[in-house]
Design a protein around this nucleic acid. Structure first.
Length: 654
DNA sequence: AGCACGCCGACT
DNA sequence: GTCGGCGTGCTC
């Protein structure tokens, strides 16, 4: 056969048994258009349907015994799947017993023909090479730069202050530091990937980058762009120019010329958790990519995640000491009645200082998330409405319709207020807006600004204002807040989750980092080790303690976990296949919470060293179940037996 | 998933 | 002797 006559193709399919390369003959008519990395269409199952796929490589001969089918078509001649990303997708999928094509769906945006055509005519210009940037802020001089040059794995606790950019904009100092690290890589003609949890972080980072490098060198990949813009940025990223690519969790898979740095801001933020199969966290993908590429890796945050602490503990990641011991002035206060009306949640000392501070500039009040369902109150007296049958909270179902009880489901039609005898209900969002109302009454002359998940405010000015925000939605204030009140700590800690403490410390720390230097930060009603960790600004030590506790319980991230869900027989067989491996233990199987016809779930816990084998064995079981499944009855309803579902490193387990 | 192949019962 | 049922297995 002539050279390059065989195309090795990854078919786009969620089926585990198709997650391998298939060989196709390249017909003469396509010989000029095939290149590794292009999107192709291939026949699957002789004369059957046509499937999409990625041409991974060209070869001269095939190992396959049978006769090869011919490649059907080349969809686009742009090689979108670069070899480095293919190797990454394969490794990351194998590690999580998932399909490489699922990873590629995250990694590669969908195609826009018009955009592609205009891009082929005039691709994005990278602009002039950048000058040397100033030293990375918050680290010992030259330390991060040396790490970037040497391909090191690093973590750095960020300077917890807002900084003013030359453009006049205020951003967190972390954004300046990350931008400088990326600019340094660019200065060395290396690309940098900057991964952030949400667009608010992204805005700050982009602002910081604008002050340092030519904007043509910066590409964005995030969900707020139009599909066409995202595709164009992606196409530019496949070019041979060093760039800085900044965006959400899928940015970790972006193509990048001569990758020099992968950086993740606030890796503990749950927004970075990947909901799409196989659910690989960008932190793990970054670790794999770092090893494959030799690029540097930088985890930066105000709060060290327990996962990064583990990596520091085993010496895989170097903890860089911050250049200066800067920390917010955190004051721990007990909850106590305040003499002021409508301010029962605020202790009097904090109250007085907040009142003084709000004359000077913005004051931040952080409250717990209200939850998506609006709470109901009596329309007449504003008393919170409760279920007449069981006393549970009443909510409007998300799908709409009559209000009902969250606990017993009783409809609240015919509700009557026990206080004032009113009969009408009114929606009120609990938390932010209620607090805003109360504070508005208590600070009658102040401007009250509300920022929550639904109506987030990105930034506020330096003028006096009371800014009430749910955790995670705090605006950045020009010059920093004159005081910060962390009001709902106790309530935030009530959430049922293995990670509440970690999450709370992160929310409090991130809000504290918005305070002006020297401004007081009041943590209300919380004591103990967690409060001490915040007030002493020693989050890494707290993470170490937490990791030790999880190690004692054999909880992640001290070990890895995989959940295995299917019918009893299939689960039992699957876990039996891994039970004997060294460093593996199995919890369950037990019925899943819902009464899904006999679904069972088992949790496999395993040491990191056993991960590859566990994934391989469970993957083999998935393929076995998928290929041997039969239609149960010759009846019309073609009901397939429950598939074997395997999920690695699920953040909700245990 | 889909679809072809193949090994047994009722048919021309 | 052959048509077609659906159980079985594979996809280059």
């Amino acid at each position: 056969m002539p050279g390059g006559a065989v195309a090795r193709v990854l078919v786009d399919s969620p089926l585990p048994q198709l997650d391998q390369l298939f060989d196709y003959a390249v017909p003469e008519r396509l010989r000029e258009r095939v290149r590794p990395g292009v999107r192709v269409r291939v026949p699957l199952r002789t004369g059957g349907r046509i499937a999409d796929g990625w041409l991974v490589e060209l070869a001269d001969t095939s190992e396959y015994g049978g006769t090869l089918s011919e490649l059907e078509d080349v969809v686009s001649e742009v090689p979108m799947l670069v070899p480095e990303v293919w190797a990454l997708a394969r490794a990351v999928a194998d590690r999580a017993a998932g399909n490489a094509s699922d990873i590629l769906r995250l990694a590669i945006p969908s195609r826009y023909v018009r955009v592609e055509r205009s891009w082929l005519a005039s691709p994005g210009e990278p602009g002039p090479p950048p000058e040397a940037p100033p030293p990375v802020h918050g680290a010992p001089a030259g330390r991060v730069e040396a790490g970037v040059d040497g391909g090191e794995r690093m973590t750095l606790t960020a300077d917890p202050r807002p900084l003013r950019l030359p453009t006049g904009e205020w951003v967190g100092a972390w954004a300046v530091a990350l931008a400088q690290a990326a600019a340094h890589a660019l200065h060395r003609d290396r690309s940098a990937l900057l991964v952030v949890p949400d667009y608010r972080d992204q805005e700050q980072l982009e602002a910081a980058l604008r002050a340092l490098v030519d904007s043509r060198r910066v590409l964005r990949t995030d969900a707020r762009q139009t599909g066409g813009d995202r595709y164009r940025a992606f196409l530019d990223a496949t070019r041979d120019d060093a760039r800085i690519i900044v965006g959400n969790r899928s940015t970790v898979y972006a193509p990048a010329a001569r990758l020099g740095l992968i950086a993740i801001w606030d890796d503990g933020d749950p927004l970075l958790s990947e909901p799409l199969a196989p659910g690989v966290h960008p932190r793990d993908a970054a670790l794999v990519r770092q090893e494959q590429s030799g690029a540097a890796l930088l985890f930066m945050a105000h709060t060290r995640s327990v996962e990064v602490e583990r990596l520091v503990g085993i010496g895989w990641v170097q903890a860089i000491e911050p250049a200066a011991q800067v920390r917010p002035k955190v004051v721990l206060t007990e909850q106590q009645a305040s003499p002021e009306p409508g301010s029962a949640r605020i202790p009097s000392s904090a109250w007085r200082q907040a009142q003084e501070a709000v004359r000077e500039g913005p004051v931040l009040v952080q409250v717990a998330r209200p939850g998506n369902a609006p709470l109901l109150t009596c329309d007449r007296c504003r008393e919170t409405a409760h279920c007449a049958a069981c006393g549970g909270t009443l909510v409007v179902p998300r799908a709409g319709g009559d209000p009902r009880c969250v606990l017993c489901g009783t409809s609240a039609s015919g509700w009557r207020c026990p206080v004032c005898d009113g009969t009408r209900l009114r929606a009120a969002t609990v938390g932010a807006s209620r607090t805003a109302e109360e504070l508005g009454r208590a600070f009658p002359r102040s401007l009250v600004i509300l920022s929550d998940g639904e109506r987030p405010v990105l930034r506020v000015g330096a003028e006096p204002a009371l800014v009430v925000a749910t955790r995670g939605a705090e605006p950045i204030a020009d010059g920093g807040y004159r005081a910060v009140l962390l009001l709902d700590g106790e309530r935030m800690l009530l959430r049922e989750s293995l990670r509440v403490a970690e999450d709370c410390l992160r929310w409090w720390s991130n809000a504290s980092a918005l305070a002006a230097p020297g401004a007081p930060v009041f943590l209300v009603g919380v004591g103990g080790a967690l409060a001490t960790a915040l007030s002493t600004w020693r989050q890494p030590e707290w993470a170490a303690t937490e990791l030790a506790a999880r190690r004692a319980l054999r909880f992640p991230p001290a070990v890895r976990v995989a959940s295995v869900t299917a019918g009893h027989a299939a689960v039992t067989r699957a876990v039996d296949a891994v039970r004997g491996i060294d460093g593996v233990d199995v919890l369950g199987p037990a019925p899943t919470g819902e009464e899904d016809e006999g679904l069972q779930r088992a949790i496999v816990r395993f040491d990191y060293g056993a991960g590859a084998r566990v994934a391989r064995e469970l993957r083999a079981e998935m393929i076995r179940v998928a290929t041997e499944r039969r239609r149960p009855v010759a009846g019309r309803p073609v009901r397939r037996p429950p598939v074997l579902r395997v999920r690695f490193d699920d953040p909700d387990v245990p």
